[in-house]
Design a protein around this nucleic acid. Sequence first.
RNA 1: GGUCCCGUCGUCUAGUGGUCUAGGACAUUUGGUUCUCAUCCAAAAGAUCGCGGGUUCGACUCCCGCCGGGAUCACCA
Length: 475
Amino acid sequence: MSDTHVRTRIAPSPTGVPHIGNTRTALFDYLLAKKYGGEFILRIEDTDQDRLVPEAVEKIFKIQEFLGMKPDESPVTGGPYEPYIQTQRLELYQKFAQELINIGAAYYCFCSEDRLKQLHEKDQYAKYDRHCRYLSPEEVKTKLDSGAPYVIRVKTPENGFSTWHDLVQGKLSLPNTECDDKVLMKTNGIPTYHLAVVVDDYLMKISHVLRGVEWMMSTPVHLFLYEALGWEPPILAHVPLLLGPDKSKLSKRHGAKSVLEYADDGYLPEAINNFLFYLGFSYQDNSALLTLDEMIQIFDENKIQRQNAIFDIQKLNYLNSQWIKKLDSEDLFNRLKKFIPENWQKEKSKVISIIDIAKERMFTLKDFAPSAEYFFSTPEVAKLQILEQSAHSEEETKKWFQTAISLIENTKSYSPESLHDEFTASQKDSGLSPKEAFMSLRVAISGRTVTPPLFDCFVILGKEESLKRLNTVFA
RNA sequence: GGUCCCGUCGUCUAGUGGUCUAGGACAUUUGGUUCUCAUCCAAAAGAUCGCGGGUUCGACUCCCGCCGGGAUCACCA
């Protein structure tokens, strides 16, 4: 393999936004190319013009950009084999379709849609009955001259086996009787996937076709085309699918989301890449935080699992929380921008100091704003809530609050450390347990029973604001 | 239904004939640290290696059958 220059590609069809399962395949394509210092190509397969989804192409680019897997060649970056959009390469496919006919590897088919439909009504699994495959040259010429609409079908072998060594599936041997005389060129002059991939992968010098297993069964047709055209086929690798928690295929219908949606939910690209990498691939204890570059080093195309993997959001959450802890707060601030109100953004240093103490309890970027709200707006706290925490009479609690207020007013330095020392000293002779003493204060300043450490909160809130909140409780 | 692929703790996996009374990670539970939560640390529980036959002195590892899951069978990709 060292003598072949590695070029991989992803070939999404803009009939929808790729979901996270498709993206995992893309990750493997990217890693494979980069591991060998090759190119990773993005080609748009838009041969199904009827089902185009607006903005799909744009989102496909966005996903790659977000994850940091930028293609070396694509419709936007261009490249030596452009264009990278199939509908802009139509003459190419027509040329090769014609050649396939000339060499007897394909044939014209004039069957009506009705006839095909009837075939399927009789048997839902029926293959094309090859009705037009045996038309005489004269019959074909007459039909053609009369201007009858036609498709071009591949003249698939009637027996034998199609065998290849699949990088992940191992040796595969599929009976040719299972092949169908697939349509190569549609009535509208646009090729189907089967013709277009083969032509493009060859012309674009793709060395490894790494794609989802859903393509495995149609590989014999592709291989036949390579052989007919006298082309060396690429190395094939069919990677398993990503399944939902109920073991069903991950699909839009079952709520399979795109990477873009995970981004909106507060997941980091680092965590997503890392998560996808471990799904179907093993490295050490499968919990190390790996960058894309590290994955490139570690990746081994021969070690891709063959069994389908189940999408486990808990593992993603873990990786995401770990990455959040690892990132520095300045970096997190920038990523947090679209998750926090605009007026917070003006107080960058305050937000960053909150991030410092909040990041170890965040799973996603979305968790930040709700847990930091009380730093920016005064919470409503009922006296009863305080007393519930202090577990003492109003009078005793009030007395403790007075102590707290004077401690803050007279503290040596308004820092978490000295506040901690001074408060713990006073708490001991307050008659309240540590929990009672500090929880009541916590609720008083935040309105919540769960916050970062109390004295950090005091400091971020500021002396004035802290006093104000403590004072208003029993006012 | 035909064809092909897959089958180790809930999940991702280690394991390529004896070192496996099956290891790790996430999740779960418990304990420790602690002003709460979280972090961190420690520990526990969790898999008769899908089932049944072989082969072998010996099988999670090899062979066969079965069962289960998945993929595919469009002028969609």
